[in-house]
Amino acid sequence: MKKNYLFTSESVSEGHPDKVCDRISDMVVDTYLGAEPQSRVACETLTTTNKVVLAGEVRGPEIKKNDLIEKVRHCIKDIGYDQDGFTWKEATKIESHLHAQSADIAMGVDSSGNKDEGAGDQGIMFGYACNETDVLMPAPIHYSHKILRLMAADRKSGKLKNIEPDSKSQITIEYKDGKPTNVKSVVISTQHSADVDQAQVRKLVMPYIEKSIPKNLLNNLDEKEIYINPTGNFVIGGPDGDSGLTGRKIIVDTYGGAAPHGGGAFSGKDPTKVDRSAAYASRYLAKNVVASKIADKCLIQLAYAIGVSKPLSIYVDLFDNDEEKNKHVEDLISKNFDLSPRGIREMLGLNKPIYEKSAAYGHFGREPEKDGSFSWEKTDKSSIFSK
């Protein structure tokens, strides 16, 4: 591992076209799980100028198409879109092409006789944690999310005016001896109204950089390395400026490139899909390992086969070249955690309508909530590893 280097991560706001799609797809998941906790959903969303298209497979209660379309409009309205090219009103046409789940997939996943419920797909999932921030996330992605999250909150409350929903952030941090020491550059591109010029946009955005990043990391940041709307103008944005699809921001959703990714997206999938549930479980395990203070960072990989309940492999890397300790952690995981799809869902309480709020600003590094949201961010099992 390199000790001295620059590392960059990006985030996108809830108004980014792909994130609009993630939000709508997770709304569909929540709608079905809220009506029937054992529902199965695999929903993809496409957005473009004044158009939204839903496609995918569901198994669960009858949800009226018109009710679902109204919920889509509510998502768009809550994000903040009421523009000529994309609005929550009737000018935006919404189509739903959801249909019944494949019987072949259902057969592999369902439990029957002595067969436990199987994974909803094959694949590999990674979880990661490190002690760079108080939420045990890599610093570049954590602060990139925070800038946009604070901007969105103030935009929705009316405190931040003339800034529109679509925005992106990117932070480069200098690491010395493996630790984040200085922010080297910040890039923020944000949609804005035609009533402000770029100097005004810069003035509006700058306070959010200062609020989001610790002062000790900003001390040596050259103002010339703060790039705000470097294209020069960003009035046309959202799905009117660029089409959006569910699942195109998987690195933004996870660790900003600081850890491997298995390739599977989260949004639009119910928790029988291990792309989602096992990624949450592996983060939960990695975070508890680091919270126990036996390692500064931890990477965990889980692997599954469709229709098979137990994971095919568990891999642990504590980045300290201590093979005995790594093997010890693997053994503790095998002995103390049921990592079957059913076991993960029960351990983390995943059969609930808790996913829509996870669609933007990262699925990890968030605060666990009373309704069960972000349960995978708890550190209630750290004592298992500290022993």
Rank of each mutant, 00 (worst) to 15 (best):
91 A>G: 07
234 F>P: 01
260 P>Q: 07
233 N>C: 03
120 G>C: 12
55 A>H: 05
221 L>I: 12
94 I>K: 03
271 P>S: 12
36 E>I: 00
64 K>V: 02
363 H>S: 10
262 G>L: 04
98 L>Q: 06
304 Y>W: 03
156 K>M: 13
257 G>K: 09
198 Q>E: 15
355 Y>A: 08
150 L>W: 01
196 V>R: 03
277 S>R: 01
294 I>S: 05
150 L>M: 15
117 E>W: 04
184 K>F: 01
78 D>F: 02
198 Q>F: 02
191 Q>V: 07
259 A>C: 05
108 G>D: 08
173 I>Q: 03
241 G>H: 12
10 E>H: 09
69 I>H: 04
334 S>M: 12
107 M>L: 13
370 K>H: 09
291 A>R: 04
305 A>Q: 13
376 W>M: 04
318 L>R: 01
33 L>K: 03
171 I>E: 00
278 A>C: 10
51 K>A: 14
34 G>D: 09
41 V>G: 06
138 P>H: 09
263 G>N: 07
113 G>D: 12
87 T>W: 07
385 F>C: 08
187 V>S: 00
50 N>H: 08
255 Y>Q: 02
294 I>H: 02
297 K>V: 06
217 L>N: 08
141 I>T: 05
310 K>P: 00
359 A>M: 08
338 D>Y: 04
79 I>E: 11
235 V>D: 12
270 D>P: 02
82 D>W: 00
360 A>V: 03
118 G>M: 08
333 I>R: 03
364 F>P: 02
105 I>Y: 05
82 D>F: 01
152 A>W: 00
166 D>R: 10
34 G>Y: 06
323 E>V: 13
348 L>C: 11
346 E>I: 06
129 A>K: 00
138 P>Y: 11
287 K>S: 03
214 P>A: 10
368 P>Q: 13
60 G>D: 05
62 E>H: 14
304 Y>K: 06
176 K>G: 01
193 S>K: 10
340 S>N: 07
204 L>I: 11
302 L>G: 04
294 I>T: 10
292 S>L: 05
348 L>M: 10
335 K>L: 13
166 D>T: 09
114 N>P: 00
131 N>D: 15
384 I>M: 09
204 L>W: 00
129 A>Q: 02
251 I>R: 04
144 S>D: 05
309 S>D: 14
7 F>A: 08
192 H>Y: 09
77 K>P: 00
326 N>W: 00
27 M>C: 14
93 K>D: 12
264 G>R: 11
387 K>A: 13
243 S>C: 15
149 R>Y: 02
289 V>F: 10
121 D>G: 10
23 R>C: 06
271 P>M: 12
329 V>Y: 00
251 I>N: 04
333 I>N: 05
302 L>S: 04
74 H>L: 15
51 K>S: 13
218 L>G: 07
203 K>D: 14
36 E>L: 14
310 K>H: 11
63 I>C: 05
102 S>G: 11
301 Q>S: 12
29 V>C: 12
